[in-house]
Computed example of a mutant assay.
Amino acid sequence: MAIKKDTLDQLLAGRDPKEVFNKDGLFDELKKALAERVLNAEIDDHLEGEAAEGRKNHRNGYSNKNVITETSKLDIRIPRDREGTFDPKLIARYQRRFPGFDEKIVSMYARGMTVR
Score class of each variant (00 low, 15 high):
residue 26 L to V: 01
residue 26 L to E: 01
residue 73 K to I: 12
residue 83 E to I: 05
residue 72 S to Y: 05
residue 22 N to P: 01
residue 7 T to Q: 06
residue 112 G to V: 11
residue 76 I to H: 03
residue 67 V to A: 08
residue 38 V to M: 13
residue 76 I to V: 15
residue 29 E to V: 04
residue 43 I to Q: 07
residue 47 L to M: 09
residue 30 L to K: 02
residue 76 I to S: 06
residue 27 F to I: 10
residue 80 R to N: 13
residue 78 I to F: 00
residue 8 L to D: 02
residue 113 M to L: 15
residue 3 I to W: 07
residue 56 K to L: 08
residue 20 V to T: 09
residue 32 K to T: 15
residue 34 L to F: 14
residue 88 P to L: 03
residue 7 T to S: 07
residue 105 I to V: 14
residue 64 N to C: 08
residue 90 L to F: 06
residue 106 V to N: 05
residue 111 R to G: 03
residue 19 E to W: 02
residue 17 P to E: 12
residue 62 Y to N: 01
residue 93 R to L: 06
residue 49 G to H: 10
residue 24 D to Y: 09
residue 62 Y to L: 00
residue 37 R to C: 11
residue 47 L to Q: 01
residue 103 E to D: 10
residue 10 Q to I: 10
residue 52 A to V: 11
residue 49 G to C: 07
residue 113 M to S: 08
residue 94 Y to V: 05
residue 72 S to D: 14
residue 18 K to M: 11
residue 72 S to W: 02
residue 109 Y to W: 09
residue 73 K to G: 04
residue 84 G to Q: 06
residue 50 E to A: 14
residue 18 K to W: 05
residue 95 Q to E: 14
residue 42 E to A: 04
residue 43 I to K: 04
residue 107 S to R: 15
residue 35 A to I: 02
residue 110 A to Y: 03
residue 17 P to M: 06
residue 71 T to Q: 13
residue 32 K to G: 07
residue 113 M to I: 15
residue 21 F to D: 07
residue 12 L to P: 01
residue 64 N to I: 09
residue 67 V to P: 03
residue 19 E to I: 04
residue 55 R to V: 11
residue 87 D to E: 15
residue 51 A to P: 00
residue 68 I to E: 14
residue 58 H to N: 09
residue 84 G to C: 08
residue 54 G to V: 03
residue 9 D to N: 12
residue 10 Q to L: 12
residue 115 V to A: 05
residue 7 T to A: 08
residue 34 L to R: 02
residue 105 I to D: 05
residue 66 N to H: 13
residue 5 K to E: 13
residue 2 A to E: 14
residue 2 A to I: 13
residue 71 T to V: 09
residue 110 A to Q: 13
residue 36 E to W: 01
residue 71 T to W: 04
residue 30 L to C: 14
residue 52 A to N: 06
residue 51 A to H: 12
residue 111 R to L: 06
residue 23 K to M: 04
residue 16 D to F: 07
residue 26 L to S: 02
residue 97 R to C: 09
residue 28 D to V: 01
residue 92 A to R: 12
residue 38 V to H: 06
